[in-house]
Design a protein around this nucleic acid. Structure first.
Length: 265
DNA sequence: GGCAATGTTAGCCG
DNA sequence: TCGGCTAACATTGC
């Protein structure tokens, strides 16, 4: 779930659900996901505050307060943000790790099956972004900046796109989709992507992310022609251009269509 | 039981 | 120094 589109959905959900409400208390059910704070301090730091907005950099979400500390959320592999209003049938889902109690009986839940997510508090959002060495948000990159980052890199294209210090937000699944839509070979060197390749990459990055957000990051609601429905070795290419193959990058499995993408840059 | 799964990061090697 | 690879983190489901 949590790549840039998912986190953007969470960001909007966070903003909508906290607007006009105060934090009445924070309950850490599982201190494993807490980073740099204990449960007591998390509660003490946030009790009584109103969030004035949100900020997202790549896959990291911040709940911003007037004078800090600000809430920092990272969703790992299985993190989710759930809003529960008071009323019947409002039981907490399994794997609820942290509960933010809001005024009016609303609860905001950090749910994370695998517990690789992180909940913490930071004094300064920009300093935190620097600490984590996050590059510009993937959606904030104009084509010339993208071109310049690509040219400076010595990495392969797929490795470049998932590197959060180059551009923040893309992960395994959406980089595969963007490369497929842009008809770029994931094996080419980032620096070898030509002008037309950069333009296609930029356009498809935005198109894929925008449509994924519009689909509420639910793959079922994404276009039929997308690779996301064919992440299987030997699956048929959605364009009828042969079969999908997998490859390995940085310990994960990537998928591509040699018929559409091989040799293209 | 084995394996893989949307992320991050430390350690190793070339 | 950089990039690529592996393992580890923790949990679940096929």
């Amino acid at each position: 779930m949590p790549e840039l589109p998912d986190v953007e959905i969470y960001r909007r959900r966070f903003e909508r659900s906290t607007r006009g409400r105060r934090v009445e208390g924070v309950e850490a059910r599982d201190s494993q996901v807490l980073v740099g704070v204990g449960g007591r301090r998390l509660d003490r730091d946030l009790r009584g505050v109103r969030f004035t907005g949100t900020q997202r950099r790549g896959k990291t979400l911040y709940g911003v307060t007037t004078d800090g500390p600000h809430l920092r959320l990272h969703f790992g592999m299985t993190g989710d943000l759930v809003v529960l209003d008071k009323g019947p049938c409002q039981g907490e889902p399994r794997h609820t790790r942290v509960v933010f109690g809001l005024s009016g009986g609303r609860r905001l839940l950090f749910v994370d099956q695998r517990r690789l997510g992180e909940v913490g508090v930071v004094q300064d959002v920009d300093a935190d972004i620097a600490d984590h060495d996050l590059g510009p948000d993937a959606l904030d990159l104009a084509p010339p900046e993208l071109a310049s980052l690509l040219r400076k890199s010595q990495a392969g294209l797929k490795a470049f796109l998932v590197d959060q210090s180059q551009l923040a937000g893309l992960g395994n699944i959406y980089t595969d989709e963007i490369l497929f839509q842009a008809r770029l070979d994931p094996r080419t060197a980032a620096a070898d992507v030509g002008d037309s390749g950069v333009r296609r990459l930029h356009r498809q990055l935005h198109r894929v992310v925008d449509r994924a957000v519009a689909a509420e990051a639910d793959p079922q609601a994404m276009p039929r022609g997308w690779l996301i429905h064919r992440r299987d070795d030997g699956a048929a290419c959605p364009r009828g251009n042969g079969s999908i193959r997998s490859f390995s990058v940085g310990g994960r499995r990537g998928y591509w269509c040699p018929g559409c993408q091989a040799g293209r840059h």
